[in-house]
Write a protein that binds this DNA or RNA. Sequence first.
DNA 1: ATGACTGCCTCTGGCAGA
Length: 257
Amino acid sequence: MKIASFNINGIKARLPRLLEWLEETRPAVACLQEIKTQDEGFPAEEFEKIGYHAVWHGQKGFNGVAILADGVAPVEMQRGLPGDDSDEQARYLEAEVNGVRVCNLYLPNGNPQPGPKFDYKLAWMERLRTRCRQHLAGEMPTVVLGDFNVIPGDRDVWSVRAMENDALMQPQSRDAYARLLADGWTDAIATLNPRGGVWTYWDYQAGAWQRDHGFRIDHLLLSPDCADRLVAAGVDKDHRGREKASDHAPVWVELKD
DNA sequence: ATGACTGCCTCTGGCAGA
């Protein structure tokens, strides 16, 4: 089964491109981030028309995540990241699809750093690690995927110097990501591309796409039983170059059935 | 060059993004 993640940067603005991508690549599960709509505005019927059922967790104006499944209804298991009752941001949604637990996340950006937004990011990452450890202790095959807003290493960015002060690649952000992985998760794209040079995001500004000035922040993490089933993983890079594209490209992993 | 672009909701400019 193919499981994909796509930060779409606004579901209303992106709907034609999103439907096109789903029909062309037909993932069994598609996790979306930055839907930027309230629950009432989510266009579920547009996905139903092409055979996808959805669960979603929206918020007015920004954030928001959704999980789509081909021909089967995802069974929602968790809405919002546990660990802080005061956190109102719609950044996390879990569902079970065909025996696999899918954890879809939109991790806080954290800029500017230092500051309260960076503190929120790091605290969020600790909460995520706690949640993920619980999953590793359980029985269900699990994939944790989405926009992590972390550049894991220097080989994951076009220019270390250009990004050195960014929250996405501060040592604290990288250490938190490394600690999460060390608990037992496999970064699918990194495992299959050990030399790096794979980007999932290109800024709209400064001709970043045309110059291939990108970095890798969208990740697919596999529990050990899913890692044993890893067949392939990749980036649908050509979708970033289309008319009215998101600033992220879709990423995906193929698991043996 | 403290720049650059895009989407959202609308206080049509300010915020957020990364």
